[in-house]
Design a protein around this nucleic acid. Sequence first.
DNA 1: TATAATGACATACGAGACGTATGTCGATGT
DNA 2: ACATCGACATACGTCTCGTATGTCATTATA
Lengths: 206, 206
Amino acid sequence: MHRPRSEMIAQTRAKLVAAARKAFGTVGYADASMDDFTSAVGLTRGALYHHFGDKKGLLEAVVAEIDAEMDARLLAVSSRSQSQWKGFVDECTAYLEMALEPEIQRIVLRDGPSVLGDPATWPNQNKCILSMSANLKRLSEDGIIRPGDPEALARLLNGALLHAASWIANSPEPEATSRRAVEGIKDLLNGLLCFPVATPAFASGR
Amino acid sequence: MHRPRSEMIAQTRAKLVAAARKAFGTVGYADASMDDFTSAVGLTRGALYHHFGDKKGLLEAVVAEIDAEMDARLLAVSSRSQSQWKGFVDECTAYLEMALEPEIQRIVLRDGPSVLGDPATWPNQNKCILSMSANLKRLSEDGIIRPGDPEALARLLNGALLHAASWIANSPEPEATSRRAVEGIKDLLNGLLCFPVATPAFASGR
DNA sequence: TATAATGACATACGAGACGTATGTCGATGT
DNA sequence: ACATCGACATACGTCTCGTATGTCATTATA
């Protein structure tokens, strides 16, 4: 019966990841002392080096965890949408909302790229892109949007969404900015449609 | 006559910024030793702390220098374009090409945000946005693109361009990827036009 | 059941790197 | 000519990381 043993190990790893996630998310990767956040969960750097190799390895694990959560959340959103087009728009706005969370901003969007290199080289970040690409591909095959390169579009939209999140998060009036960003996104997406709807959004406009 | 004096000082500052820029651009901010790159130009950390306060202050100076160069280059591009719309597209592609340079990727796009906080909080990064916003505003006032929020659009496009640059830079075939990205950009921009050009047209490049 | 072996983790140590406090020396102003 | 100031160097302390080593419990084996 080697259950308790492996359970303890998994728990240790989970504790380390959780502690690091909290530290990275608050004070940032560079200012997070390994001695501090390991002792915060009753461990030392010995455990950390044993399980993750080095500080960077722990960051990778944290990023992977957050990425998995983001994937799951996006999947949940897209799964309960009826129309294809609406589902796509919903997923985009959900993605934008996630990118607003301070923990994600700091760990995934700022420290992650700085320490681990460009997100385009990570295995995970691509899952969102792939999912988006697949959606765009179906949309163009079904004649809903104009033909084009789905992956290229997905990457461009992804960048636009992430950047919009930063804009919102650092805006003096996040809610108003959020509305402007969402409207801008819808405007951009609308431009992709074969038969654009005359949205009341910019008809009622500014 | 205190010219030579101030000139020496300016030269010292320039040497520090240049040395830091080279170090940050190659090994990255975190792994750039202040002792190393100051001694590379015949100085010590004393000069650095005297002029820039700390390592972060030096990074700010480096980022400001690069940003100023980017602004100047963009201005040069847009100034010699005849048609408004073509000028805008040219500026976008020039921006994308700049974002491809490894030094800009590393210092401005990765380490900068991680160390200095989100670019949206910098004073500089906004100049590109402002310029783009102004362009979009004129384009919509002149009835070339649909009405909309110019700043929001500018920020979204800015994010798309930066992200596209990362995609290209980390692609196994950068040239082919670049073509796909540019085409995607043109597709997106085309969607903004009041009277989009016929679809196959912009695939062939105009 | 006794023993060997493995692995999970802690502890001890050394190496840089940063920031500060202090010192020096030349230039500047009167 | 002298006092001041500022540009820069040097010395020191502190923190953090990574490695090398040690210990102890668990597991496998006989």
